[in-house]
């Protein structure tokens, strides 16, 4: 459906406002810092878990790629988070308390040890120093990996931003799926073709999970679904879906052709970036128009009376 046709088909919702001005403040976060932080964190988390699984099943070349991707993603994620702060020199204040009511506090307590462990594991892998401690760090990062993939979904959903909050049952699955296909994407790009079978499976699972969850978000939230399929976020998320499908399709030829494997991996990684930026911008858009605040709240009030 083209955006133009869509506009004509959906009747203008009736709502009142203060001169059409927004009720909510748009997120004060920076772009590309925060969507980048979401993407890199997911990539790192999935990669660390895949590295642990590869170690367990005797696939050292996949384990090495996973450790390196986890360390690189984690460092990038932390860097983006610190750069986004209004007072970066106070980053450590994130760790002065632990608050379960703050997904950013919980997230910092996941991200900080994860990053340390992932970097230690990769460092040991590269240099050969302290192999046992390095392996132990790898297991630790692998265990924290799944949490890295999903806490950022709670981080976005636990706001008043309509498009994020209303999507809270589905966002963790969008992010989990996206992280898995990103992790698989990195491994497809870097790994020798003969060893990619488990990676292809991770990618396919992730692609299926992300596509299903994203489709639910786009369809089931009433007026709040609108930002997910219109404007810039709509374009980004459409691109994400096409790229995910492309990656999944190409990955099936990944064991025969190095070119196909690399192309599949690149498509998955690009899809991951598009998904995070798309979801981020959909949220921002939903704060700019008061109808996304007033209309659902009015419906809620009407249903109560």
């Amino acid at each position: 459906m083209s955006p133009k046709r869509e506009k004509a088909m959906v009747p203008q919702a009736e709502f009142r406002s203060y001169y059409g001005k927004p009720i909510l403040k748009p997120p004060a976060w920076k772009v590309p810092d925060v969507p980048g932080y979401l993407f890199l964190g997911g990539l790192a988390g999935a990669s660390a878990t895949m590295a642990a699984a590869a170690t367990l099943t005797g696939r050292p070349e996949l384990a090495k790629i996973g450790h390196l991707a986890a360390a690189g993603g984690a460092l990038g994620s932390v860097g983006a988070l610190v750069h986004d702060l209004g007072r970066p020199e106070r980053f450590l204040n994130m760790l002065r308390v632990f608050k379960v009511t703050s997904p950013l506090s919980v997230g910092s307590w996941i991200l900080a040890p994860f990053s340390g462990l992932a970097v230690a594991a990769a460092g040991s892998q590269l240099t050969g120093i302290f192999p046992r401690l390095g392996a132990l760090a790898g297991w630790g990062a692998g265990a924290l990996g799944p949490a890295m993939c999903t806490y950022t979904a709670v981080l976005l959903a636990d706001t008043a931003v309509p498009a994020w909050h209303e999507a809270h049952p589905y966002l963790p699955f969008v992010f989990a799926g996206s992280a898995m296909s990103s992790g698989a994407g990195m491994a497809l790009v870097a790994a020798p073709v003969a060893s990619t079978r488990p990676v292809v499976r991770v990618g396919l699972l992730g692609a299926a999970m992300e596509t299903a969850a994203l489709t639910t978000v786009e369809r089931s939230l009433g007026v709040v679904s609108e930002p997910y399929h219109s404007g810039r976020p709509g374009t980004l998320l459409k691109a994400a879906k096409v790229l995910t499908a492309t990656g999944a399709g190409l990955s099936l030829f990944g064991r025969r052709s190095r070119v196909a494997a690399v192309a599949a991996g690149a498509a998955y990684l690009a899809a991951g970036i598009c998904t995070r930026f798309g979801v981020y911008h959909a949220g921002v858009e939903s704060t700019k128009d008061p109808k996304y605040v007033v209309t659902p709240q009015r419906e809620r009030l009407a249903a109560r009376h």
Binding site: M50, A53, P146, Y151, V154, A160, H168, P172
Partner: peptide, 30 residues
Amino acid sequence: VTTRDLPAMWKRAAVAAASVAAGVAWAFLG
């Protein structure tokens, strides 16, 4: 208040994280 739904959100995130762990395990152990 958005945190009214936070317990539900953490639960969903835990299920999603468990799916990642299970999915990766299946992919590598299969």
